[in-house]
């Protein structure tokens, strides 16, 4: 839940996190733009679902990023 909260803050641009992973950075940028165009709870949920799916798929190489985001 803590990770969800931090990810929501990143998507809403209330927190900043920059990765060394190109795909994650481009994804964050895309989700921030998408949410800014439609700042609704439903869109936030969609964005959250997409970034969590990314972390799940790349769990083996995203651990450092997840740990760092949880500490934001």
């Amino acid at each position: 839940m803590e990770l969800d909260f931090k990810l929501q803050k990143i998507i809403k641009k209330e927190a900043e996190y920059k990765s060394t992973n190109l795909g994650l950075n481009l994804l964050i940028s895309r989700l921030q733009r998408r949410y800014s165009l439609n700042p609704s709870q439903a869109e936030l949920d969609n964005c959250l679902r997409e970034i969590k799916a990314f972390f799940e798929k790349y769990a083996n190489i995203m651990k450092k990023d997840v740990d760092a985001i949880e500490k934001l």
Partner: peptide
């Protein structure tokens, strides 16, 4: 491309 869902799920 930048607007496509799941684009970043596969390199």
């Amino acid at each position: 491309a930048p607007n496509v869902d799941d684009l970043f799920m596969n390199p």
